[in-house]
Simulated scan of single mutants.
Amino acid sequence: MPMSEVPVDDFRAVFAELARGAADRDRTGEHPYGLVAALGEAGFGKLRVPVEYGGYDVDLPTLFALLAEAGEADSNIPQIWRGHFTTTEILRRESDCAVRDRWSSAIGDGAVFGNAQSEPSTVGASTRDLSTHVRETVDGRYVSGTKFYSTGARFADYIRAAVADGAERRFVVLPARHPGVTHVDDWDGIGQRQTGSGTTVLADVPVEDLGDIGRGDDAVRGLDSFVQVVHLANLVGIARNLVSDTVELVRGRTRTSLHGLTQVAAEDPEVLGVVGRIQASALTAETLLTHVAQRLEDAHAADDERGFAATYLTVSTAQVAIVDAVLDAASSAFHAVGSSAVRNCVGLDRHWRNARTLASHNPVVYKPRIVGDHLVNDVYPNSGYYQQP
């Protein structure tokens, strides 16, 4: 579908509303339920759904560019939608036509998916690591268990949950608003506070008809890179917001330092240098995001396992650089504004807290070694989507 037919202006109108209240919501803990729903009503959730199911079928660079815009407005938003867009990627490669048709059509009609994959005790991909099981009855299949990091589930119509079904670990679709689903608002992270990334308790929740989704390696091929690039797009959005907030604070600063070279902060060479370096970090992150988004798009077009592995290495390399650049910028911004920047009412700290929280996903500490092992020893990493805790 041509981009002219994608309602980008409608998305940006909601982004603008999100931006106006983001700092206040961070302080008060208010969740953006209405605005997340408004994005869904505008068609945001069907960006990657094929046209035949009512979607816009945009390419990955376009999706990630829009997620960066959403992250610039409010960094909770790309993370809330991350599980949904992961589901649409799985459906694009779903081998069961009936399953693909059912859920792609549902999303094309406006349905939103949340995530309930992880549990605090899980350490691997084995069914023995999952407390969430499927119970077979004559009336159907039912799921009980407790999930954590269930980002987006409290905003959703359906939940894509990882469960132990006999000896298999698989994804099933559950109704997010069933009476047996309890969304506990207990996420206590230092950042990304309005993502709903807390506990979801499942008590005899029925598996939807045609609710087995993403079976087989092909359905999840490339997802290890995809889920990481969503976070990288979000970090780009944070970096942009950090630049604009710092510029605004410097322009409004009326005090200067004893050792300042001017009486006006907006004319101080050191202060201006800090702002310039923050912009350099933001540009670094943006450029790398554009690069890895196109690499992932190319890998999907080629549909080659080695190509996906090479893309994962590129994404991992970009992750190291983007995390370093954005965290450094989020810390350096305080040099430009002085002690007034640490006040809660200013909200500058939320950029570092949110970036630090995002950077802690898919731990970056392991990525340089993976990249180095490939360069020195020609070792390619295995796909790790099912192994992510």
Results as ranks from 00 to 15, higher is better:
Ala73Cys: 05
Leu210Cys: 03
Gly21Leu: 04
Ala161Val: 04
Ser95Ile: 02
Leu288Ile: 05
Arg277Thr: 01
Tyr53Trp: 12
Arg251Val: 01
Thr182Tyr: 02
Thr132Phe: 09
Pro7Lys: 13
Asp57Phe: 07
Tyr142Pro: 01
Gly196Pro: 01
Ile90Lys: 03
Glu94Arg: 01
Asn382Gln: 14
Phe44Tyr: 12
Tyr158Ile: 04
Ala23Leu: 10
Gln294Cys: 03
Asp298Asn: 10
Trp103Ile: 09
Pro7Arg: 15
Asp157Tyr: 11
Ser4Phe: 03
Pro269Ala: 09
Gly140Thr: 00
Ala37Phe: 04
His351Gln: 11
Ala341Pro: 05
Gly237Val: 03
Ala302Lys: 07
Asp157Thr: 07
Asp24Leu: 11
Phe334Lys: 03
Tyr33Leu: 13
Ser144Asn: 05
Val123Asp: 11
Arg350Gln: 13
Val230Thr: 06
Arg240Glu: 14
Ser75Asp: 06
Gly276Asn: 10
Thr132Glu: 03
Gly222Cys: 08
Val326Glu: 07
Glu72Ala: 10
Ser331Arg: 14
Thr200Ile: 12
Asp139Arg: 15
Val163Asn: 01
Arg100His: 04
Gln388His: 14
Ile190Met: 05
Thr287Met: 06
Asp101His: 12
Pro363Ile: 12
Ala318Thr: 09
Ser340Leu: 11
Gly214Cys: 07
Thr122Met: 15
Val14Pro: 02
Val205Asn: 13
Thr132Tyr: 09
Ser257Val: 00
Thr200Trp: 00
Leu283Arg: 15
Val58Ala: 07
Glu5Ser: 14
Asp304Gln: 04
Ala266Cys: 12
Ala233Asn: 08
Glu17Met: 02
Ala280His: 08
Glu72Gln: 02
Tyr56Phe: 15
Cys345Asn: 12
Leu66Arg: 04
Val181Asn: 05
Gly108Ala: 12
Arg277Gln: 03
Ser4His: 09
Val320Phe: 12
Thr256His: 09
Ala176Gly: 09
Phe15Pro: 07
Ala330Lys: 09
Leu242Glu: 04
Thr357Cys: 05
Asn241Gly: 15
Glu72Cys: 04
